[in-house]
């Protein structure tokens, strides 16, 4: 799994950062998304997918299958 973030689209709703704080944070000033681990460990994949689906702005995308082939 690879997380792709489009900070130009992010509105800083904080849905991802509050749901999976070990993977997502927000910029301390702008409050746009910061992906702490773009190739997250398999045990977080479900939570990451759910957070991406709950993101209102469409700023987040996950590429790849559940196998984190690119780590």
């Amino acid at each position: 799994m690879r997380i792709v973030a489009d900070t130009g689209r992010c509105i800083g709703a904080a849905v991802c950062a509050l749901a999976v704080p070990e993977i997502f944070d927000q910029d301390p000033v702008e409050a746009t998304v910061v992906v702490l681990d773009p190739a997250p460990p398999p045990e977080t994949h479900e939570a990451v997918r759910e957070a991406v689906e709950r993101c209102p702005s469409g700023a987040l995308r996950v590429d790849g299958s559940t196998v984190s082939a690119r780590t």
Partner: peptide, 18 residues
């Protein structure tokens, strides 16, 4: 819209601000 909207998150939704 984004120009205005971007101002709110640091005040209202950043986890540390919350």
């Amino acid at each position: 819209h984004i120009r205005i909207r971007r101002n709110f998150a640091p005040q209202l939704s950043h986890p540390r601000r919350l």
